[in-house]
Simulated scan of single mutants.
Amino acid sequence: MAETTAEIVLFDGFDELDAIGPYEVLENGARAGASLETRLVTLTETDLVTASHGLRVEPDGTLGEPDILLVPGGGWTTDGGVRAAVEDGALPTAVGERAATGSTIASVCTGAMVLAEGGVLEGRPATTHAVAKGDLKGYAADVHDARVVDDGDVLTAGGVTAGIDLALWLLEREFGAAIAEAVETEMEHERRVEVVR
């Protein structure tokens, strides 16, 4: 069986926990036996990306054609982060292209706004951080008050810490409950399982 590739796409102003939480979960999943490689990537080559709270991250490379593409949130209510990424348009376009070619697309928090701008959420169930739910409805998404929404090839998570639950759900869905439970135990995290399917 071929190794599953997951890429978490970073941009200036992303929320640290939105990206690093799922990264740690997925990496721990690989250590627990999941055939999974997780990479932190950017759209264009860069040495460092600065997150919303000042953390500077060195990406592993640029966005490829992953099996799973995860988009973090951060900065929807400011001029940077997700707001700037949506206004720029390059990231939403790249996400839409990956969705069209078969990647499973996931978002954490206001990363859902990137998916929406990329045309991925129209008419589909989704969730996001409370501050962006009204805006997400404006994209004709079927917005739910849920921690994680799984619509098959598109998954969305609510605010910040929900990304950990999203990543645990992905491990369970793709690699089995035993791996997800092993990671949950190792990380001493108790999931609030509210997956809407």
Results as ranks from 00 to 15, higher is better:
E122A: 15
V108K: 08
R197W: 03
A177K: 05
W76H: 01
A167K: 07
A51Q: 08
T46K: 13
D153K: 08
L43V: 01
L43P: 03
T44W: 02
A85I: 10
T62A: 06
D88H: 10
V108Q: 08
R173K: 15
G33W: 05
T50Y: 02
V25H: 05
G61T: 15
G81Q: 05
L63V: 12
V9G: 05
V143H: 13
G159T: 11
E188P: 03
A146T: 13
D153E: 14
A141P: 07
L166E: 06
S52W: 02
D12E: 14
A140H: 05
S107D: 13
G80Y: 00
V86F: 04
L155K: 09
L63W: 14
E37A: 11
G13H: 08
G158L: 04
R31E: 06
A182H: 02
V49L: 13
G102R: 03
R83L: 00
R147C: 01
V57I: 15
A100R: 12
G29P: 03
K133P: 03
G159M: 11
V108T: 12
A6M: 01
D12M: 05
V49K: 09
E7P: 12
I179H: 03
L40F: 15
I8F: 14
R31M: 06
T62Q: 09
E65R: 12
V41P: 01
G119T: 04
L55F: 11
D142Q: 09
D60N: 14
V114T: 14
F11P: 10
D79R: 08
P92R: 10
T128F: 05
G159V: 13
G96L: 07
E97H: 12
R56W: 01
V183Y: 05
A157R: 03
T128S: 15
T78S: 15
A126Y: 15
T4C: 13
V49P: 11
E24W: 00
G138M: 09
R56A: 14
D12L: 04
R197E: 15
R83C: 01
T5A: 09
L168W: 08
A94P: 07
T5N: 09
V25M: 05
P66D: 14
S52F: 12
K137A: 15
A126S: 11
L17M: 15
V95I: 10
I164E: 01
A32P: 02
G74I: 11
G96K: 08
A99M: 00
D88T: 02
R98M: 03
A106C: 15
P59T: 10
V95T: 04
A99V: 02
G159S: 13
A162T: 15
L55E: 11
G158K: 00
V149E: 09
R31A: 08
V131R: 12
G96T: 11
E16V: 00
A132V: 00
L70R: 10
G163E: 05
E65L: 02
V183Q: 04
G13Q: 06
T185R: 11
T4Y: 01
V25P: 04
T156D: 11
E3G: 06
T62Y: 05
D79Q: 07
A90E: 14
E45L: 01
I20R: 00
F175V: 08
